[in-house]
Amino acid sequence: MTTTPVKPNTSLVAPANSPLKTPGLLSGEFFQETFALARRLFIQLQRRPSTLIAGIIQPLLWLVLFGALFQNVPEGLFGTSQNYGQFLGAGVIVFTAFSGALNAGLPVMFDREFGFLNRLLVAPLASRFSIVLASAIFITALSLIQTAAIIAVSALLGAGLPGPLGLSIVTLIVLLLVLGVTALSLGLAFALPGHVELIAVIFVTNLPLLFASTALVPLSFMPTWLQAIASLNPLSYAIEPIRYVYLHTHWSLSSVVLQAPWGSVTMGVALLVLIGFDALALISVQRLLRRTLA
């Protein structure tokens, strides 16, 4: 123990006189705390890179192994795709981003369980939304790294590469999907009692949503009842536009990307569905987050 004297605390009088106004959303303080919270997550990632490495290897294995499984499928069976690998690429991009975002709530849940969240809650945060935003930034960055890796490897495997505009639409779609799913996962992280329950929810959501989407096979492959489900599944609305820009050098918002049982879905509609999904997700978790974080 040192004998350095503690600085006299002169702030005792000041608070009572100082104005009670505190910084809010979009203030410099808000960005400071959001940045610091996100930094923590990136430091964790840097010191424990296994999540990232596994998160990149796994989708690549999907591509290589699952792709090989249907390699000998007759041409034309998977729509206009030249080979199954090309068909699968879009599915793997979306599914990887989706699983990553679905797990976004886990670190927050562990912070709740270990009491680290209390450290944040007793601090005079400009807005506790920064806790959520920091997680969202982190997950988004992670998804983009994974997406880039998948795009690069599928290009090497002969799936081709969309043009710059196509790549931007891929990025936009990934971001839209990650935003909505991250919001839901973070909402669950505050609503569920513990990590066991959260993992259970992730588990029962993850694969069924994959199989009930157009990630692995086209709609035309499915029985009618599954077609109905798959054409309600937000994943399909992310997969099909990406698949379309992979296959077509010329596309527009009015290009038909999905032939649903009730009619054709254009690129523009698919994007609107994703935006609607985000809005719905954000609204539904907002009250949940407000209850805990208000």
Binding site: E33, A36, L37, R40
Partner: peptide, 19 residues
């Protein structure tokens, strides 16, 4: 404490939370 952070990093986070 976040066991992955160093003591200094934890304090840096704490300082930012208090602006």
């Amino acid at each position: 404490l976040d066991k992955v952070l160093t003591g200094r990093e934890l304090l840096q986070l704490q300082a930012a939370l208090y602006h």
